[in-house]
Design a protein around this nucleic acid. Structure first.
Lengths: 155, 155
DNA sequence: GGGCATTCGGTGAATCATCAACGACGTCTA
DNA sequence: TAGACGTCGTTGATGATTCACCGAATGCCC
């Protein structure tokens, strides 16, 4: 009952590895920059961005978790740490007694307003500036297509 | 002294986010598959692949760390866990009294030989199959170029 | 050879992520 | 309105990663 394995061709192998490597490097570099220049982790940054996307800077925990594709448990722990550092506060939810809101504080707002321009600049310097518009479109197209397939796939 | 920030255009923003999302999803899915079907983590898999790349299945620790772009400390901790599970053993180094080798065990070899075909298949199913050869070439080209720039950049 | 910096690897503490379980609440149905 | 069931969020235990540091061995330069 032995199936033959279709191993990757050298080109495929190399493309796949470069692709993975790029991601690791970019993320590593960007998060070290965020940490060094603005004293926030990439995770903090993501949460703060989501919060500032709403006019009042408050969102339900599960809503946040879904937006960032985190587990609710991770979100809960992470929010706890951010509360301790004064970036956000918890607030209870009137409509739903089980629920809870997270609200950005002034300190949190100050932090992200300081961090965002540097971050955008870094994304340009390290990534976008080295890619042609056509390549970027290809990248976006491929990414969307593959993610879509992943979502369809039962797992 | 205020600099103007060149925020991302909607297209850039969307491409960047899709790109990040793709990676997270793919990695998550692949590592869950490895874990579920073959009982190894993606990290274990990487180490075992590096070890089987040499004829005798033994490599210096720092050498491994560099190949995987890990910190030596992470490698050391990880090897410790793999030793505990019987996938590899440590071996001392004759030429250099400070050094140490890691050697794959029979159990480790069996594990990766079981895992590799499934993994390759998954990479095809989830990624390569949804991409044209031209797109793959673009991806590889862009990845290599950007990684190269990252390496040049002082940080 | 004696001193000194560097490299190799390991360790403990702190941080972060994941998993299973839980309590509290909401919703649906009989 | 009672019970069953699902959802929201938290918690504690367990693993994994990073950081700062250490000891041992090596290489280097005088």
């Amino acid at each position: 009952m032995e199936e033959k394995v279709r191993w990757l061709t050298p080109e495929e192998q190399q493309a796949w590895r470069s692709f993975l490597r790029l991601h690791d490097r970019l993320r590593g570099r960007l998060s070290r920059l965020l940490q060094a220049e603005s004293n926030v982790s990439a995770a903090d940054f993501g949460v703060l961005v989501e919060l500032t996307d709403t006019p009042d800077g408050r969102r339900r925990i599960l809503d946040l978790a879904r937006a960032l594709e985190w587990e609710k448990s991770r979100m809960s722990h992470h929010i706890g740490r951010m509360v301790k550092r004064g970036l956000v506060v918890r607030d209870e939810c009137a409509e739903d007694g089980r629920g809870a809101f997270v609200v950005i504080t002034d300190a949190g707002r100050a932090m992200i307003e300081a961090a965002a321009p540097r971050h955008v600049e870094a994304v340009r310097d390290l990534f976008l500036d080295h890619i042609t518009p056509a390549e970027l479109r290809t990248l976006a197209r491929v990414s969307e297509r593959v993610v879509e397939k992943l979502d369809e796939d039962p797992s």
